[in-house]
Design a protein around this nucleic acid. Sequence first.
DNA 1: CAATAAACGAGACGGTACGTCACGTCTTACG
DNA 2: CGTAAGACGTGACGTACCGTCTCGTTTATTG
Lengths: 199, 199, 199, 199
Amino acid sequence: MSNAQNPARARRSESSRQAILTATRALISEVGYKTVSIEAIAARAGVGKQTIYRWWPSKGAVIFDSFLALSADVDGQGMALPDTGDIESDLKLVMRATVTEFADPDFERPIRALNTEIINDPDLATQFHEKLARPVDEAKKARLRSAQQAGQLATDADLDLVLEVLYAPLFQRWLHRSGPLTAEYADCLVDITLRAFGP
Amino acid sequence: MSNAQNPARARRSESSRQAILTATRALISEVGYKTVSIEAIAARAGVGKQTIYRWWPSKGAVIFDSFLALSADVDGQGMALPDTGDIESDLKLVMRATVTEFADPDFERPIRALNTEIINDPDLATQFHEKLARPVDEAKKARLRSAQQAGQLATDADLDLVLEVLYAPLFQRWLHRSGPLTAEYADCLVDITLRAFGP
Amino acid sequence: MSNAQNPARARRSESSRQAILTATRALISEVGYKTVSIEAIAARAGVGKQTIYRWWPSKGAVIFDSFLALSADVDGQGMALPDTGDIESDLKLVMRATVTEFADPDFERPIRALNTEIINDPDLATQFHEKLARPVDEAKKARLRSAQQAGQLATDADLDLVLEVLYAPLFQRWLHRSGPLTAEYADCLVDITLRAFGP
Amino acid sequence: MSNAQNPARARRSESSRQAILTATRALISEVGYKTVSIEAIAARAGVGKQTIYRWWPSKGAVIFDSFLALSADVDGQGMALPDTGDIESDLKLVMRATVTEFADPDFERPIRALNTEIINDPDLATQFHEKLARPVDEAKKARLRSAQQAGQLATDADLDLVLEVLYAPLFQRWLHRSGPLTAEYADCLVDITLRAFGP
DNA sequence: CAATAAACGAGACGGTACGTCACGTCTTACG
DNA sequence: CGTAAGACGTGACGTACCGTCTCGTTTATTG
């Protein structure tokens, strides 16, 4: 944990790292993914380009890390889903929140940028799942497991599959802008999923 | 339709257009989305850069059109799905074929390139749905409608939603490389969908 | 002579070429050789860097051409040396003028820059002799030949050697700052040379 | 001489100093002047960059010192020229040796590097004359003085000027690659000089 | 059936950003 | 405290493409 144990990395400037990640997030929000350049990030962060190239292998990795840093702040706190005992209303609450989140324009550009990188870089996709998606999915699966024990969900249901059926249609609609994202749509997906995986 | 009716475009060189679209597909297959440049397309097609800029508004539009041209060949023929009378086995056949298609490495790079463009360009997304996705979806919905009439599917089922539940999980897995794409998975999605939307 | 005969070069922008050479001369005078960068030249000339790299192989070549362009203006006019019939006074006049020229601070930096490039680049050295030094040397040798016919110089004197004995000491003093450059020194070199190569 | 007399420098690592000067000479011989970098010298010498910056004000100073260190080895021994009593044959011997030396490719790059630095840095030029050129010139002038006493050279000849007439043409030819350096040329320069400064 | 005007190939142009290299300064850990 | 190591902010390097802009040269009607 101490620097003495990891001397090779002791030299890395934490303040530069933070400045880079912050500048990256700011630029993505302001100008969108395609226009963000390493030069602009370095200039905004008050940092040499080499400092970016030294520690990140690609622009995608910087963008990814800038998200990771954000979620790391949240990570510590429990991210458990609400559990009122009624899986249907709990899921609808969560799904409606997700719909709202996707509708936020400040959310739009960064997440599209992140997806653009992930789609074209298998390594980033792996990192994405391990570091960003998994913790959230585990919280969701915990709630689903509780529903199974309550007899509201088939005990043999593959919970990963349940999450896919629940979220993938929403994600696809958002990504391809192929339909409206409404509270009704969120409810509908919950209903469908519970019918499919009900006891 | 005739040149006389559209004299402004009368001079456009069809051979250059074909050469550009062919070169685009070839380059995407060879070097992937990120490395494809307008200059490379022009050079490969034996065409001046200006000829590309004259007729397409963006690189994404060229990429999109290069796909459109491919599917246009197929369009004429009916793309009706098989109809043996058994919706479950018919859908499983189709879904397994889709899984196979997604697993083809030659298919990989072009479709990721196309998705990259669509994600970041609403206009292209609209075009994508109208010209590429809709015809295919209509064929699928025709088969689902036949299943409804045969009492194998709820009569009030929203067929667009059925397609989303059926395909979105598969699409998301492929796009994010978040899980294996197998025949079992295809079957499983059909089973889930039929349970959710069964009569 | 017409563009039709030399179509490959017809496209080169003469205005850009002039702007680059002018900017180069200005920058060398202002900041000295070591600080001149291609980027600065391009910026000052209002030109893309590629336009420089397209037409010149090295920074040295640009610097060299910026001098060549200057002397080209002068080239047309005859550059014959004075010929009063008295080789001694004529040479002293010319040598004193050379000493004065070398003492001009505006002359200092550009010529040192030019020499720096020539020393380290054989190609440039060749170009230097063919395009810049030779015409001047020929004019000087013409005057020396006239002196030979007048019986003021040995008829078998190697005129190239005469020029070297006359000018090389001066050049070396200036280049290495190894001694004062005065009118007396100029006169002295003429005296020595005439004694060495006299009849 | 002892550390006690110069305590401020007592800590300076002599082994690092030698390693730096040796590495500098090696690099100049290998890659030429333009490509030699402080970083490369430090890496080759196994030395921190700061150690170079601490003790030398510029790259030119390092290069200069790397030559100085070489000649210092030779300095101690007398560097008197041969004196057979015949100035002509003695000078021809020395000049032919100089021509041979200049023709040595191992000699080429270092001396061009040294001259490049000297041309553009008056301080280095001064150091060059005081520490490197003067001792050699004094040895040569001693031989010339002996010739004066022997009546082979004008008693009022300015010996610095004699050296310039003798060596500057050779130096200029080499520096500008403006002509062949041959034994005949060496002899010729001696003949000219003796005619110019003969009694 | 020329003339003529557009689209064409070619590629130079002013730019932006790339990823690399070296600069000279600064910080850390060691001896 | 001098040192080896090397990260840092800075800035130039030379390259790749961008999108615009001429250049002649097809090419395909239209007066």
